Amino acid sequence: MRSRLALPAFVCSAVLLALTGCVANESGPDATHATLTVDSSASECAVSAAEAPAGTVRFRVTNSGDKVTEFYLLGHDGLRIVGEAENIGPGLSRDLVVELEPGKYFTACKPGMTGDGVGKAPFTVTESGAAGEVDAALAARIETANSGYAGYVRDEVAELATGTDAFAAAYVAGDEALARSLYAPTRAHWERVETIAESFGDLDPKLDLREADLEEGQEWTGWHAIEKDLWPAEAEAGYQAYGADKRAHLAKLLVADTQTLKGKVADLSFTLSQQTNGAIGLLEEVASGKVTGEEEFWSHTDLWDFQANVDGAKVLYAGVRDILLDKDRKLARQLDTEFAALQALLDEHRVGDGFAAYTELSAADIRALADQVNALGEPLNRLTAALVIS
């Protein structure tokens, strides 16, 4: 889950400004899709229209406030995230391109990226009445990519559930050494599909909330609540270890919430834009937490998470790469290069089957990783528009 702590200055300049300032290229005439503008200020989330026809919809979000903001398109329940544009810096713009079925939705913005957000408003997607020609071969390739990714998500969550059972059992039994050894490799399954988990309303904070993001009166559960207890030497002065009852409570909730996630992904299906926006979202997870060392505040296993987010993004990209080669070969080659360069940097910090602790990285190491996330983020942010807007 995204950390909301202040980022080191050089990481902000190297990563967030690049990711937040990118506006997708116009790859075709606007007549083929609906384009709406969104003005996100400190107190409002002003969308230029309250409805759009079904099909491809582009939200062009501009941050007129003084804090980094996010824009959300939510499902009819107001909780499920259909699409999001994150980390939009003051004065900058970002596009969210989504493929929408007719129905009821909500739009909202979150200045400061904390709290309940502002300007939540109903948004309706109407029947388009358009019956364009269908390229059967292309449709088959898209369906293959969509179903393949759905299978990948189910497999990763199944592995997550199995690993969580073992981790929770070790934690409750007091075998802290075993629990610590299982922590990072088990969480990797979560991090590879993190953006999918985030789409299920309050399930993500139950499982992955950081202490820094707790709201007043909110119960802290999930991986990071247990992480703090497993690495007490890294906790603040005066920290009191959890008793047996609290350990059992946290472990039980972790297992139960993971099983809930497993049930929710059982019948998943995707559109092409959901896949590509998922890849973008996973890289933003890297930029906003992993490359800054904020995600794993006590265990310092951030590079495991970093790799897992990149793994998930690469799987998503690989599923649509052959389609992109037909539409924008130059962009595909650029993404190939930047993914490979980022992987090469990560590989420099491997230790055995895992990674060095984040605290062992030098300032130059962190800057190099941040710069490469920047280099990958720019073309990756153009992927959705390149594929779904003709």
Rank of each mutant, 00 (worst) to 15 (best):
S3V: 10
L7R: 09
C12R: 06
A14Q: 00
L17Q: 06
L19C: 00
L19G: 00
C22E: 14
D30V: 10
A31Q: 11
L36W: 05
S40N: 05
E44I: 02
C45H: 07
C45D: 01
V47A: 08
A50I: 05
A50S: 15
T62V: 11
T62C: 04
K67F: 02
K67H: 05
F71V: 04
L74R: 06
I88P: 05
G89F: 08
S93F: 07
R94K: 15
V98T: 09
L100I: 06
T114G: 04
D116R: 10
G117A: 07
K120P: 00
A121R: 12
F123E: 05
T126D: 04
T126F: 03
E127H: 12
G132T: 08
E133W: 13
V134N: 01
D135Q: 08
A136Y: 05
A137P: 02
L138S: 11
L138R: 13
A140I: 00
A145N: 01
A145L: 04
G148P: 02
D155A: 15
A158D: 10
E159H: 15
T162K: 11
G163F: 07
F167M: 02
Y171D: 02
L178A: 14
S181W: 02
A184H: 05
A184D: 15
P185Q: 12
R187M: 11
I196Q: 11
S199F: 07
S199P: 01
G201H: 04
G201T: 03
L207R: 09
L214G: 08
E215F: 14
G222M: 10
E227H: 06
K228P: 02
L230F: 06
A233F: 03
E236S: 11
Y239I: 02
Y242V: 08
D245Q: 14
R247N: 05
A248K: 14
K252N: 08
D257E: 13
K264D: 11
A266S: 14
L268W: 06
L268N: 06
Q275T: 12
T276Q: 11
N277D: 12
N277C: 07
G278L: 13
I280L: 09
I280E: 10
L282W: 03
E284I: 11
K290N: 09
E294Q: 15
W298R: 04
W304Q: 13
Q307A: 15
N309E: 03
V310A: 08
D311E: 11
A313S: 12
K314V: 10
V320N: 07
K327Q: 11
D328K: 06
R329V: 10
R333K: 15
L335A: 12
L342R: 05
L345F: 14
D347K: 13
E348H: 15
R350Y: 09
G354H: 09
L361P: 02
L361E: 04
S362H: 02
D365R: 06
I366P: 00
A368M: 08
V373I: 13
E378S: 00
P379V: 05
T384A: 13
T384G: 07
A385K: 07
V388F: 11
I389M: 15
